[in-house]
Design a protein around this nucleic acid. Sequence first.
DNA 1: CGATTTAACGAAAACGTTTTCGATTCATAC
DNA 2: GTATGAATCGAAAACGTTTTCGTTAAATCG
Lengths: 340, 340
Amino acid sequence: MKQVTLKQIAETLNLSVSTVSKALKDYPDVSKKTKRLVKETVELLNYKPNAFAVNLRTKESKTIGLIIPEVVHHFFSSVIKGIIAKAEKKGYLVIILQSNESYELEKKQLDLLSSKRVDGILISLANGTADFKHLNDLILHELPLVMFDKIAKIVNCSKVIINDRKAAYTATKYLIDSGCKRIAHFRGPLLPQNSIDRFLGYKNALIEHGISYDPSLVYILKDMSYDEGVHFAGQLLKDHNDVDGIFINTDLVAIGAITEFNRIGVKVPEDISIVGFSNWFMSSVISPTLTTIDQPGYEMGKEAFKLLYKEIKRRKENLPIKFKTVELETKLIKRASTRN
Amino acid sequence: MKQVTLKQIAETLNLSVSTVSKALKDYPDVSKKTKRLVKETVELLNYKPNAFAVNLRTKESKTIGLIIPEVVHHFFSSVIKGIIAKAEKKGYLVIILQSNESYELEKKQLDLLSSKRVDGILISLANGTADFKHLNDLILHELPLVMFDKIAKIVNCSKVIINDRKAAYTATKYLIDSGCKRIAHFRGPLLPQNSIDRFLGYKNALIEHGISYDPSLVYILKDMSYDEGVHFAGQLLKDHNDVDGIFINTDLVAIGAITEFNRIGVKVPEDISIVGFSNWFMSSVISPTLTTIDQPGYEMGKEAFKLLYKEIKRRKENLPIKFKTVELETKLIKRASTRN
DNA sequence: CGATTTAACGAAAACGTTTTCGATTCATAC
DNA sequence: GTATGAATCGAAAACGTTTTCGTTAAATCG
């Protein structure tokens, strides 16, 4: 039941531990004959190298960390899947931690991962994160770090993002083109770059199309939940009876809003058109189906790992690192929550 | 930039490595004064124990593995969240791998995890898994293993499940009570215990309520996807024009069916009542909202980790292990896809 | 005061690899 | 015959902890 070690193989073959080790790694200074012999007994005894010892010796664990704000979330699930898929191909395992949108937790998780000595970290920031010392510290300690989706522009590392501003512009423009004149915006919290960029895209689209920007039409949400969608849909109707379109920061919120509008008899899209963001699966299933921006989570995960992998490799070979920002394409998915 | 080691602390304080180590772990044979001194310099130099060395020495990694069939999945996401939450509290990290419902992949992932020497493994089986040698091998090697949701009764280990049979019985009975006479069933593949039990619950409910069981009303699905829901909804109408209720193995499929019925003008629940299974978030949002069985994913994750943790602990202390099966409560969520 | 206990520390082995550097043998070259 | 080189192998250090077992000095006891 005990685990087989190199030493045992060496003893059965009357060899030294070093030769056995070298035989397994195809060193040139061990004869073909003993290589064959070693490999045979390895099979026979079902030897598996002790990962702990290998880690200690090679100073790497072939494991990376992933920190996301929330696991039960269509977009992040897709990202996770992409990361795991790509990582596995390269022989890496991934440890997943959740920040719960809390800066404090995020810091703690980062600490945990670096003390576990993962080879690199992938992170999507919590909404509350405004201070970036914890991230810069990691970079200073030369631990490869790649940010995705919810990033901080100011932190100097590789990133993979979408063009939130452009996508929001497209979404808003689509509302305008379909005839909307008074367009509201449900935005995310003040901090994350995402929320800011999507808001700016919305604002620009209005201005560039001769619609005056009215700050009272912009609602700042906190946790971007379904319930908030319900709540602010009601609130909006109370505040403004002339709104005919909403660009909403996230599908989940949009779905809350649609449900509320359905409930109280406001017709979507006849009375109010709605565009969401992210293209959650749910959006193609709600009635009316939701026009939205497709955000490629799976690809984002794959791309993020690819960047991290490159950095890990170059770091190992002591080559200079050049940080890169990859921007992924989004596209407008036209459905039934908007007029055409 | 280099990592601080015990040796460096020892040298700065003119102590030996052993005393420093013991000071940090509050051994009784080191004076309060030096303990204080050591802890101060540890703070000062920002010493973090080298996890690789600790692992090698203690023969444990404080890491567990998790294998699930699919990451982008409401139920499994919830399980993941529960596991991570509970594991973190006990100082464990979790590595997530995906089997993609493939037996071969499942075997490979299990191998990966055990060669990484995780302290324990949590697994929900792939649909294709009929042979359990890979699982029994792990148990033989005394690697703690807990199965959840999609389990194999025959494998001797701890498990956490729901009573699929009872839940399916409840669901079907509810259809009967609401007046349905011809009730179809969309079931999962032949293998997983889940599918079998839910099918048996369905069948029993019919028989016990004087409705003859008609095998032609049972449709065997393969991948339990939205598209299959759409497809079999259409197929069912072609095959039987007298069906007035369906008990569907999974919400995602049920939602596909509802969408299809909506599209072709079959009224739910007036023409056909539908009950799903799992209570995905989506189910409360589709129109009509879906009556379903709530399956507590988050709790299942927490419970599964708790069992695993106990086993890891007892194994470490060389105490006898008694395998346990925890059964979690489900409940019927009555919504608009059924008559009342 | 000698014997024994107690307190505080250090030496060293061990965990299982990887890799450098010699050491040995044997063939080849001059 | 000596010198050079290739071909094989092994010894040993190193990675950074943890823990056992001594060792020393001071304190306690009869």
